[in-house]
Design a protein around this nucleic acid. Structure first.
Lengths: 223, 223
DNA sequence: CGATGTGAAATGCTTCACAGCA
DNA sequence: TGCTGTGAAGCATTTCACATCG
């Protein structure tokens, strides 16, 4: 289920803030879904809640971890160390348990050989051998669009079965390779779509005093 | 529909490569969906195709543009000019028609006052006034997680009705504000989820010779 | 008594199959 | 003849409502 990671993050933040038990109603508000949806989602993972009380955050987090396969390690590699690749490698966003950045690749001789985020930047030619040694399962593409398909082909040949593509390019991969896009312009266009539909119904003006309920806790940085 | 931007990008690439008419079958292969889905999706936009021939790419692109609201300008601002904010501002990923980056904000005195991507970096205090002048509709949050909610609140108060959040934090906004996450760890977790499910069924080994059909055209860079 | 877990109804999305048009 | 457009069937997800349990 695509919502589990969201619940997971919310629960982790709640735990850090000292809340250890939470009813579906509250979780629903925070995740911006309905309470029924939360209950049904969580019920697929087993009987996690306590009637009359709610869910114990720690228990649910652990159970979601298992369901998401985060109880095992996924070795990852980043291909393409331009600005974005650099930013991601250093972001620590991978450091969350379950994922481990084990290799970096590029072709630019100015970058190959340098160290980024405590890892050497290797030439893509080494991808095959490194993939075998490290048993890479996830490849992150942060190359220019023009190289993205070539890199994807290479990753697939090396047995990498999950690809995260940041390049603004639609990629072709075999059916059994999992491909996901993290794509600025696609997101923007989706926003534009919903927004223009909504504008037809009601013309919005600035919120005078939005009633916001926020979780205010420090988290890890990405920038 | 969330697939329209994908069709759009593919069609644009086909156009650049000189193909101007395409049957649903081919579009389906490139977008990794079924032909029936393509036809139904496009049929919602009107009667665009020619029976016996296929779709004329230029016509469909234009029609999708209209449906997505890309025939109007959406003024955007980026808040938070760390590595990621910088990379995005310079990426040109916004330059695609429909979106216009009009302002940059930060609080760090080392950054405020400098110029990035031909725009001055302003202090967030100015957000309200700039928002009025420029009629901001989209806000991009690339701050550390700890500041993200505060920035979101501010954007909402200033009448920004679409927020794109890159910070690893679940945000609370009013119902009528459109909020989307571009989130590394959520994507990774979703991949992990599908991947671990799949591993149960079949244990994969590297592809010997993947039969790949790729669109090979230059596109814009993001890195 | 309060909140979960869950059948059953409602809704939405996808696939199928084929009529209809170029 | 080839491919689109589309009702109808099939499937999945969401909502509802309430029995059930701590």
């Amino acid at each position: 289920m695509v919502r589990l990671p969201v619940y997971q993050r919310i629960l982790a933040e709640l735990l850090r803030s000292g809340t250890d038990t939470v009813p579906s109603e509250q979780l629903a508000v925070l995740a911006r879904v309905t309470a029924a949806k939360v209950r049904k989602d969580l019920s697929y993972l087993g009987t996690l809640g306590t009637r009359g009380t709610g869910y114990e955050a720690a228990v649910v987090v652990e159970e979601i971890d298992r369901a998401l396969g985060l109880d095992q390690e996924w070795p990852m590699a980043i291909v393409g160390l331009g600005n974005l690749g650099h930013a991601l490698a250093n972001s620590g966003g991978f450091a969350s348990h379950g994922f481990k950045l084990v290799a970096l690749f590029d072709v630019d001789p100015k970058v190959v050989g340098s160290r980024v985020a405590d890892l050497p930047v290797r030439h893509v030619e080494e991808l095959a051998s490194v993939s075998r040694e490290e048993r890479l399962t996830i490849g992150v593409i942060t190359t220019p669009a023009s190289s993205a398909q070539g890199v994807a082909d290479l990753l697939v040949r090396c047995g990498v079965c999950s690809i995260l593509n940041f390049a603004p390019r639609v990629l072709a991969v075999p059916q059994d390779v999992l491909l996901r896009y993290v794509d600025l312009s696609i997101e923007l266009q989706v926003m534009s779509f919903y927004q223009s539909r909504r504008l037809l119904r009601s013309s919005r003006r600035p919120h005078a005093l939005p009633a916001l309920r926020s979780i205010s806790l420090p988290g890890q940085d990405i920038s």
